[in-house]
């Protein structure tokens, strides 16, 4: 990771992921209720991006499906997969805890409560904002509740933070379930459930701009803080001795992680497991140096999410599975296999 071979390896892994990811994207854009051959997809994309090619090779419907329906969805999968994985890396490093994931601070429960309240009570109760904004507000509310509780009731520590996050999250989830239960309307209940389990089906070009800006900025910021993340792995005292102010870096990373998670949840619901397993998988491949780990986790998370979304909308046609169901059903055994086969320990010291 630090030697020449390490950098090589990271570069190779990244290159492989990008190539595989691009190929997968072309396939994913082609597959769905109407199949479009990969070659045609490539032609359409090429024409849309560069203006080169012969538009008579495809129909207007095909162009519409590729460009307006499926491509935004694939791009959203890339953004959300990368963001959740990078937040997972950050959460695990900052808390020095292999169980940490983007949702450990109660963020997901808060976002779910916001979204479900919006769905059940109606947009009017929220002053007409979109469901995404309601979800984001819920995420921020939960995060502040957790942070304020930890800050004002004793000394700050990672374990207190995790505990408070889990407990406050459970309370929020209870409220969410209450709202769903008392709605007694099958349509609302289904929409709410679908949202809680995560979905990328809402992707449209006009809704991609804000998430793109936030998610890309956040991931780049985390990459810029790779050295500090490396230092934090050795504990606060050693971090200080290495010239890193542990409290300042931690605060900065919490804010970035909260923004990334809040936005990801706002656009795609609660997609479980990605932020937990992708960082570990990436660590197994390129090691714990965050200079390599962060970009590889981002790429791996993006590829994984595109693949999972493709599965979620093709295994049970014409029904679409919530993407969170697929991540958990596929992710759990894959992760156990990885854990059993590797000689690596998971965070024991």
């Amino acid at each position: 990771m630090t030697g020449k071979s390490g950098s090589w390896r990271t570069g190779l892994v990244l290159g492989g992921l990008v190539v595989a990811g691009l190929a997968l994207c072309v396939v994913a854009v082609g597959i769905g209720s109407a199949f479009i051959p990969p070659a045609t997809v490539a032609e359409i994309l090429g024409y849309r991006l560069t203006g080169l090619g012969d538009p008579t090779h495809w129909t207007l419907t095909q162009d519409d499906i590729v460009w307006n329906l499926r491509l935004p969805r694939v791009l959203l999968a890339i953004l959300v997969g990368a963001a959740l994985s990078v937040v997972g890396v950050v959460a695990q490093a900052v808390m020095r805890n292999p169980l940490a994931d983007p949702y450990v601070l109660g963020i997901s429960s808060g976002a779910a409560l916001g979204a479900v309240a919006w769905l059940v009570l109606g947009a009017a109760a929220f002053g007409g904002v979109s469901v995404g904004v309601a979800a984001f507000a819920g995420a921020v509310l939960a995060l502040f509740a957790v942070a304020a509780f930890v800050r004002f009731t004793g000394t700050f520590s990672s374990s207190r933070l995790v505990l408070a996050g889990i407990v406050i999250g459970a309370g929020f989830t209870g409220l969410t379930n209450f709202l769903i239960f008392q709605a007694r309307d099958v349509g609302t209940t289904n929409t709410a459930l679908f949202w809680i389990l995560g979905s990328l089906s809402g992707a449209r070009w006009d809704q991609l701009l804000v998430p793109t800006v936030v998610l890309v900025t956040g991931v780049v910021l985390v990459m810029l803080l790779s050295r500090q993340l490396n230092a934090l792995l050795f504990g606060d005292a050693t971090a200080a001795a290495l010239g890193v102010d542990p409290n300042r870096v931690r605060l900065l990373l919490y804010v970035v992680a909260a923004a990334l998670t809040g936005v990801a949840v706002a656009v795609s619901g609660v997609i479980a497991f990605v932020g937990l397993i992708v960082p570990h998988a990436a660590r197994l491949v390129v090691g714990s140096d965050h200079r390599g780990l962060v970009p590889v986790a981002a790429a791996l998370g993006a590829v994984f999410m595109v693949a999972v979304d493709l599965l979620s909308r093709t295994v049970m046609p014409p029904e679409e599975l919530p993407v969170g169901v697929v991540t958990a059903v596929l992710g759990a055994p894959a992760f156990l296999l990885l854990m059993a086969r590797s000689t690596v320990r998971f965070g024991e010291s």
Binding site: G235, T238, A241, G347
Partner: peptide
């Protein structure tokens, strides 16, 4: 000033090389 504090925790699977390389962070 370089320091070795007491009881340094090792999160995740840092290799010996990772540990020594961390000295270059500053």
């Amino acid at each position: 000033i370089a320091a070795v504090p007491q009881d340094t925790p090792f999160a995740f699977d840092l290799t010996v090389e990772d540990i020594v390389a961390a000295g270059r962070i500053p």
